[in-house]
Simulated scan of single mutants.
Amino acid sequence: MFTSGAPGAATGPARLVAAHARVFAETSPTALDPALRPFLADLVRPYGNALREDLLEEGVGHSFGEMAEAMLPSIVGPDEPVDLLVLAFAMHDLRLGRATACYLSDRCSGRPMAFAVCDQGSGAAFTALRLTEAYLGSGECSRALVFIVEQSALHYELQEPAPVPDRHTAVALRLEQEGRRLGLRQHTGVDAQRVPGLLRSSLAGNDAPVIASARLAEVAPGVATVVADAGQPYTGIWWELAQGGHEGPVVLADYEPAHGLLCISTVDQLTLARPAPAVA
Protein backbone atom coordinates (compact mmCIF):
# COMPACT_ATOMS: atom_id res chain seq x y z
CA MET A 1 0.00 0.00 0.00
CA PHE A 2 1.24 3.47 -0.93
CA THR A 3 0.42 6.47 1.24
CA SER A 4 1.32 10.11 0.86
CA GLY A 5 0.97 13.23 2.95
CA ALA A 6 0.64 16.90 2.10
CA PRO A 7 3.32 18.48 -0.10
CA GLY A 8 6.16 20.43 1.45
CA ALA A 9 6.51 24.19 1.50
CA ALA A 10 6.01 25.79 -1.91
CA THR A 11 9.13 27.00 -3.67
CA GLY A 12 7.58 28.18 -6.94
CA PRO A 13 4.38 28.18 -9.03
CA ALA A 14 2.96 25.36 -11.10
CA ARG A 15 2.81 26.19 -14.79
CA LEU A 16 0.43 25.00 -17.49
CA VAL A 17 2.31 23.85 -20.58
CA ALA A 18 -0.32 21.97 -22.64
CA ALA A 19 -4.04 21.31 -22.86
CA HIS A 20 -6.00 18.97 -25.11
CA ALA A 21 -9.73 18.22 -25.34
CA ARG A 22 -11.73 15.49 -26.98
CA VAL A 23 -15.34 14.38 -27.41
CA PHE A 24 -16.00 10.65 -27.40
CA ALA A 25 -19.01 9.98 -29.60
CA GLU A 26 -18.94 6.21 -29.25
CA THR A 27 -20.24 4.23 -26.33
CA SER A 28 -18.00 2.28 -23.98
CA PRO A 29 -17.91 -1.52 -23.67
CA THR A 30 -18.33 -0.91 -19.95
CA ALA A 31 -21.88 0.31 -20.66
CA LEU A 32 -22.84 -3.24 -21.63
CA ASP A 33 -21.24 -4.89 -18.63
CA PRO A 34 -23.96 -7.12 -17.07
CA ALA A 35 -22.63 -6.21 -13.61
CA LEU A 36 -23.60 -2.56 -14.09
CA ARG A 37 -27.32 -3.03 -13.47
CA PRO A 38 -27.13 -4.89 -10.12
CA PHE A 39 -24.38 -2.54 -8.95
CA LEU A 40 -26.51 0.53 -9.69
CA ALA A 41 -29.64 -1.11 -8.28
CA ASP A 42 -27.87 -1.64 -4.95
CA LEU A 43 -26.48 1.91 -5.10
CA VAL A 44 -29.81 3.71 -5.55
CA ARG A 45 -32.16 1.41 -3.59
CA PRO A 46 -31.76 3.24 -0.25
CA TYR A 47 -32.74 6.52 -1.94
CA GLY A 48 -35.73 5.23 -3.90
CA ASN A 49 -34.34 6.21 -7.30
CA ALA A 50 -35.67 4.28 -10.29
CA LEU A 51 -33.19 2.84 -12.79
CA ARG A 52 -33.21 4.02 -16.41
CA GLU A 53 -33.80 0.66 -18.02
CA ASP A 54 -33.75 2.21 -21.50
CA LEU A 55 -30.16 3.43 -21.07
CA LEU A 56 -29.03 0.16 -19.55
CA GLU A 57 -30.51 -1.84 -22.40
CA GLU A 58 -29.01 0.45 -25.06
CA GLY A 59 -25.58 0.37 -23.43
CA VAL A 60 -25.28 4.16 -23.27
CA GLY A 61 -22.37 5.82 -21.49
CA HIS A 62 -18.58 5.97 -21.31
CA SER A 63 -15.84 5.13 -18.86
CA PHE A 64 -13.60 7.90 -17.53
CA GLY A 65 -10.66 5.52 -17.51
CA GLU A 66 -11.04 4.62 -21.18
CA MET A 67 -11.47 8.28 -22.16
CA ALA A 68 -8.43 9.52 -20.24
CA GLU A 69 -6.27 6.57 -21.27
CA ALA A 70 -6.99 7.31 -24.93
CA MET A 71 -5.77 10.89 -24.40
CA LEU A 72 -2.49 10.02 -22.69
CA PRO A 73 -0.43 9.86 -25.93
CA SER A 74 -1.64 13.34 -26.92
CA ILE A 75 -0.49 15.00 -23.69
CA VAL A 76 2.68 13.15 -22.63
CA GLY A 77 5.27 10.99 -24.40
CA PRO A 78 6.42 7.51 -23.37
CA ASP A 79 9.85 8.92 -22.42
CA GLU A 80 8.36 11.73 -20.28
CA PRO A 81 7.72 10.32 -16.79
CA VAL A 82 4.87 11.88 -14.84
CA ASP A 83 5.06 12.38 -11.08
CA LEU A 84 1.41 13.16 -10.29
CA LEU A 85 -1.92 12.35 -11.97
CA VAL A 86 -5.23 13.82 -10.77
CA LEU A 87 -8.69 12.93 -12.08
CA ALA A 88 -11.46 15.50 -11.56
CA PHE A 89 -15.14 14.75 -12.13
CA ALA A 90 -18.64 15.59 -10.89
CA MET A 91 -20.98 12.85 -12.13
CA HIS A 92 -19.77 9.41 -11.20
CA ASP A 93 -17.84 7.17 -13.57
CA LEU A 94 -19.62 4.57 -15.68
CA ARG A 95 -17.07 2.02 -14.47
CA LEU A 96 -18.13 1.77 -10.84
CA GLY A 97 -16.06 0.14 -8.14
CA ARG A 98 -12.69 0.88 -9.74
CA ALA A 99 -10.06 3.35 -8.56
CA THR A 100 -9.78 4.98 -11.98
CA ALA A 101 -6.95 7.35 -11.08
CA CYS A 102 -4.83 4.38 -9.98
CA TYR A 103 -5.79 2.54 -13.17
CA LEU A 104 -4.53 5.50 -15.21
CA SER A 105 -1.32 5.67 -13.18
CA ASP A 106 -0.55 2.09 -14.18
CA ARG A 107 -0.82 3.09 -17.84
CA CYS A 108 1.04 6.38 -17.61
CA SER A 109 4.78 6.85 -18.04
CA GLY A 110 6.42 7.03 -14.63
CA ARG A 111 3.48 5.35 -12.84
CA PRO A 112 2.72 8.57 -10.96
CA MET A 113 1.08 9.04 -7.60
CA ALA A 114 -2.61 9.37 -8.46
CA PHE A 115 -5.87 10.38 -6.84
CA ALA A 116 -9.30 11.75 -7.75
CA VAL A 117 -11.22 14.88 -6.75
CA CYS A 118 -15.02 14.72 -6.79
CA ASP A 119 -18.16 15.73 -4.83
CA GLN A 120 -17.51 19.41 -5.59
CA GLY A 121 -19.41 19.76 -8.85
CA SER A 122 -17.62 22.05 -11.30
CA GLY A 123 -15.28 23.14 -8.51
CA ALA A 124 -13.51 19.76 -8.64
CA ALA A 125 -11.31 20.81 -11.57
CA PHE A 126 -10.11 23.93 -9.75
CA THR A 127 -9.43 22.00 -6.55
CA ALA A 128 -7.47 19.44 -8.57
CA LEU A 129 -5.36 22.25 -10.03
CA ARG A 130 -4.83 23.85 -6.63
CA LEU A 131 -3.58 20.56 -5.18
CA THR A 132 -1.41 19.96 -8.24
CA GLU A 133 0.07 23.43 -7.90
CA ALA A 134 0.95 22.68 -4.27
CA TYR A 135 2.81 19.50 -5.20
CA LEU A 136 4.65 21.04 -8.14
CA GLY A 137 5.44 24.22 -6.23
CA SER A 138 6.99 22.21 -3.40
CA GLY A 139 9.63 20.78 -5.72
CA GLU A 140 8.59 17.24 -4.85
CA CYS A 141 7.46 16.54 -8.42
CA SER A 142 8.21 18.15 -11.75
CA ARG A 143 5.43 17.01 -14.11
CA ALA A 144 1.72 16.42 -13.49
CA LEU A 145 -1.42 15.60 -15.47
CA VAL A 146 -4.94 16.71 -14.60
CA PHE A 147 -7.87 15.06 -16.38
CA ILE A 148 -11.28 16.74 -16.25
CA VAL A 149 -13.96 14.34 -17.45
CA GLU A 150 -17.73 14.06 -17.85
CA GLN A 151 -19.99 11.47 -19.45
CA SER A 152 -23.59 11.96 -20.49
CA ALA A 153 -25.36 8.85 -19.22
CA LEU A 154 -27.04 8.83 -15.82
CA HIS A 155 -28.65 5.43 -15.45
CA TYR A 156 -31.16 6.36 -12.76
CA GLU A 157 -33.78 9.02 -12.15
CA LEU A 158 -32.87 12.01 -10.00
CA GLN A 159 -35.09 13.25 -7.20
CA GLU A 160 -33.76 16.77 -7.72
CA PRO A 161 -32.60 18.35 -11.00
CA ALA A 162 -28.88 18.31 -11.72
CA PRO A 163 -26.86 19.24 -14.83
CA VAL A 164 -26.19 16.21 -17.01
CA PRO A 165 -23.68 16.66 -19.88
CA ASP A 166 -24.73 16.39 -23.51
CA ARG A 167 -21.56 14.59 -24.59
CA HIS A 168 -18.79 12.36 -23.25
CA THR A 169 -15.91 14.85 -22.98
CA ALA A 170 -12.41 14.83 -21.53
CA VAL A 171 -9.82 17.58 -21.14
CA ALA A 172 -6.19 16.81 -20.31
CA LEU A 173 -3.95 19.47 -18.74
CA ARG A 174 -0.20 19.08 -18.42
CA LEU A 175 1.56 21.10 -15.72
CA GLU A 176 5.23 21.44 -14.96
CA GLN A 177 7.59 23.57 -12.92
CA GLU A 178 8.61 25.42 -16.07
CA GLY A 179 6.13 26.98 -18.48
CA ARG A 180 3.26 29.44 -18.33
CA ARG A 181 2.17 30.60 -14.90
CA LEU A 182 -1.08 29.32 -13.43
CA GLY A 183 -2.90 31.57 -10.95
CA LEU A 184 -5.81 30.15 -8.97
CA ARG A 185 -8.33 31.40 -6.42
CA GLN A 186 -11.30 29.64 -4.83
CA HIS A 187 -13.94 31.43 -2.77
CA THR A 188 -16.16 29.30 -0.54
CA GLY A 189 -19.56 29.93 1.02
CA VAL A 190 -20.62 32.27 -1.79
CA ASP A 191 -24.34 32.65 -2.50
CA ALA A 192 -25.56 33.73 -5.94
CA GLN A 193 -26.24 37.33 -4.87
CA ARG A 194 -22.60 37.83 -3.90
CA VAL A 195 -21.13 36.38 -7.08
CA PRO A 196 -21.19 39.48 -9.37
CA GLY A 197 -19.53 41.78 -6.85
CA LEU A 198 -16.96 39.24 -5.70
CA LEU A 199 -16.11 38.29 -9.27
CA ARG A 200 -15.65 41.89 -10.39
CA SER A 201 -13.54 42.60 -7.32
CA SER A 202 -11.35 39.58 -8.06
CA LEU A 203 -10.92 40.71 -11.68
CA ALA A 204 -10.17 44.35 -10.86
CA GLY A 205 -7.16 45.51 -12.86
CA ASN A 206 -7.21 42.36 -14.99
CA ASP A 207 -8.16 43.11 -18.59
CA ALA A 208 -7.78 39.52 -19.78
CA PRO A 209 -10.75 37.94 -21.59
CA VAL A 210 -12.93 35.84 -19.29
CA ILE A 211 -14.04 32.33 -20.23
CA ALA A 212 -17.02 31.61 -17.99
CA SER A 213 -19.43 28.75 -17.53
CA ALA A 214 -23.07 29.25 -18.48
CA ARG A 215 -23.95 29.04 -14.77
CA LEU A 216 -21.63 31.91 -13.91
CA ALA A 217 -22.69 34.02 -16.89
CA GLU A 218 -26.30 33.71 -15.76
CA VAL A 219 -25.69 35.05 -12.24
CA ALA A 220 -23.04 37.60 -13.30
CA PRO A 221 -24.16 38.94 -16.70
CA GLY A 222 -21.78 41.09 -18.68
CA VAL A 223 -18.58 39.70 -17.20
CA ALA A 224 -17.82 36.85 -19.60
CA THR A 225 -16.01 37.35 -22.89
CA VAL A 226 -16.71 33.74 -23.88
CA VAL A 227 -19.53 31.67 -22.41
CA ALA A 228 -18.84 27.95 -22.45
CA ASP A 229 -21.39 25.49 -23.78
CA ALA A 230 -24.04 24.81 -21.12
CA GLY A 231 -24.18 21.23 -22.40
CA GLN A 232 -20.67 20.69 -21.01
CA PRO A 233 -21.29 21.77 -17.40
CA TYR A 234 -18.03 20.38 -16.00
CA THR A 235 -15.56 20.51 -18.91
CA GLY A 236 -16.91 23.48 -20.89
CA ILE A 237 -14.51 26.23 -19.81
CA TRP A 238 -11.53 23.86 -20.04
CA TRP A 239 -12.62 22.88 -23.54
CA GLU A 240 -12.56 26.55 -24.51
CA LEU A 241 -9.06 26.89 -23.01
CA ALA A 242 -7.82 23.93 -25.03
CA GLN A 243 -9.18 25.42 -28.26
CA GLY A 244 -6.86 28.42 -27.93
CA GLY A 245 -7.38 31.45 -30.10
CA HIS A 246 -6.67 34.18 -27.54
CA GLU A 247 -3.42 36.10 -27.21
CA GLY A 248 -1.96 36.73 -23.78
CA PRO A 249 -3.52 35.65 -20.50
CA VAL A 250 -7.11 34.46 -20.13
CA VAL A 251 -9.30 34.04 -17.06
CA LEU A 252 -11.33 30.90 -16.46
CA ALA A 253 -14.22 31.31 -14.03
CA ASP A 254 -16.96 29.03 -12.77
CA TYR A 255 -19.60 29.01 -10.06
CA GLU A 256 -20.93 25.89 -8.37
CA PRO A 257 -24.16 26.95 -6.59
CA ALA A 258 -24.69 23.62 -4.83
CA HIS A 259 -21.46 24.16 -2.88
CA GLY A 260 -21.18 27.96 -2.94
CA LEU A 261 -17.86 27.77 -4.82
CA LEU A 262 -16.63 30.65 -6.97
CA CYS A 263 -13.45 29.58 -8.76
CA ILE A 264 -11.12 31.77 -10.83
CA SER A 265 -7.91 30.87 -12.64
CA THR A 266 -5.72 33.09 -14.81
CA VAL A 267 -3.39 31.43 -17.31
CA ASP A 268 -1.27 32.56 -20.21
CA GLN A 269 -3.03 31.49 -23.39
CA LEU A 270 -1.28 28.57 -25.03
CA THR A 271 -0.57 27.94 -28.69
CA LEU A 272 -2.47 24.70 -28.94
CA ALA A 273 -3.71 22.31 -31.55
CA ARG A 274 -7.45 22.30 -32.04
CA PRO A 275 -9.39 19.65 -30.08
CA ALA A 276 -9.43 16.26 -31.74
CA PRO A 277 -12.66 15.50 -33.61
CA ALA A 278 -15.22 13.24 -32.02
CA VAL A 279 -14.46 9.56 -32.37
CA ALA A 280 -17.19 7.70 -34.20
Rank of each mutant, 00 (worst) to 15 (best):
V146S: 05
A144R: 01
L173G: 10
I148L: 04
R167E: 13
L158S: 07
E157I: 05
L173K: 11
E178A: 14
A172K: 00
H168M: 12
L175D: 06
R174T: 12
A170Q: 05
Q177F: 03
R167A: 13
D166E: 14
T169W: 07
P163F: 10
Y156P: 03
P165H: 05
V171R: 08
I148S: 00
E178P: 00
V149C: 09
G137K: 01
R167Q: 15
G179V: 04
F147A: 04
A172F: 00
G137S: 02
R167K: 15
V171C: 13
A172Y: 01
A170N: 10
L175A: 10
H168T: 14
E160D: 12
G179W: 02
H155P: 02
T169H: 15
Q177A: 15
A162N: 09
L175Q: 08
V146C: 07
R143N: 07
I148C: 08
L145G: 05
L158Y: 00
I148K: 02
Q151T: 01
H155L: 09
Q177K: 12
G137F: 01
G179H: 05
C141G: 11
A144G: 00
V164E: 09
H168L: 11
G179T: 04
E157P: 01
E178K: 04
Q177I: 10
A153D: 03
T169K: 08
H168N: 15
H155S: 02
L175W: 09
A162P: 03
Q177T: 15
L158V: 07
R174H: 10
L175S: 09
G139A: 04
Y156F: 15
P161V: 10
A162S: 13
E178S: 05
C141V: 09
H168R: 12
L145M: 05
L145H: 02
Q151H: 02
G179K: 03
Y156Q: 01
V146N: 03
Q177W: 05
V149L: 15
E157K: 06
L145T: 06
V146Q: 03
H168W: 14
Q177N: 15
R143S: 10
G179C: 04
Q177C: 14
D166Y: 07
A153V: 03
L175T: 11
R174C: 14
L173F: 13
L175H: 10
C141H: 05
P161R: 07
Q159Y: 07
V164R: 09
P163L: 10
Q177Y: 04
H168D: 15
A172P: 02
V171I: 09
I148G: 02
A170V: 13
D166W: 10
S142G: 12
E160T: 09
S152M: 09
E150I: 04
H155A: 06
A162G: 13
H168E: 10
S152H: 11
G139H: 02
R167C: 09
Q159K: 15
E150G: 01
H155N: 08
Y156N: 02
Q159I: 11
L158G: 07
P161Q: 10
G179R: 04
S152E: 09
P163H: 12
L158K: 05
Y156E: 02
H155C: 13
V149I: 12
S142K: 06
A153K: 01
A162E: 14
V164L: 12
